[in-house]
Amino acid sequence: MTSRAMRATFQIVLLLFLLLFVYMLDFRLGVLRLLFPLQRELIYQRVTLPTLVIQHLQMVTISSAAATIVGLLIGVAVTRPAGRDFLPLARDLSSFAQTFPPAAVLALAFPVLGFGFRPTVAALFVFGLLPVINNTISGIESVDSRIVEASVGQGMTQKQVLFRTELPLSARVIVAGIRTSIIINIGTATIGSTIGAGGLGTVIIAGLVRNNTAFVLTGAITAAGIAFVVDWLFGRIETLFYDPRERVTT
């Protein structure tokens, strides 16, 4: 079996496991019983796991979608001639902010934004913005200036240069930024439950409070599984775009 086929098989098994774990109560019970034979309370009763997954995905989807759109706009704006002056500022700010641990972002966000779903989404949005801005800037900056000059020289308008040359040539790097942003947010969103946002963090915190490792693991496994699947999905999406190393779209 080739390594590629092996990877594909592994991913399908993982996806199946995740679906069964979330949606088939008996399967989850079986797995957890195997891991924690002494634990009596294995299933979190207050909210069902599928509901927590949906809450979690809602937070991530809304925040990441907004981060992607706004991040792209900012990244594009500061690489235009008119916005160039703000380029160093945008780059420094996003590099600096990315060194913040995600938990610190939330800790800073909740005194300002309060408790619940909305402030968490807002904090995730801010944090998810950074990789998108960073990658949009470096993607567009890495497009060979002579190719841009050739495009301008052929008579493209600024908009055409952006959409026909710069974005297609940097799409892979930009998608990689969106991918990073979403993966980080899937993890960070679990911490969001500490300020009452719901999501998979709920069951993890319940586990920590009651000293129930099965609960903690339920949340952690599910979040990690979602992150894996999303990561794989975006890995596939990236290959749709021009690869500067191969210089050919596949």
Binding site: D144, R146, I147, E149, A150, S151, G153, Q154, R164, T165, P168, L169, Y242, P244, R247, V248, T249
Partner: peptide, 11 residues
């Protein structure tokens, strides 16, 4: 307009 070597759009 023809320039040296890399003027073609690689994608």
């Amino acid at each position: 307009y023809v320039i040296q070597s890399v003027g073609l759009l690689p994608h």
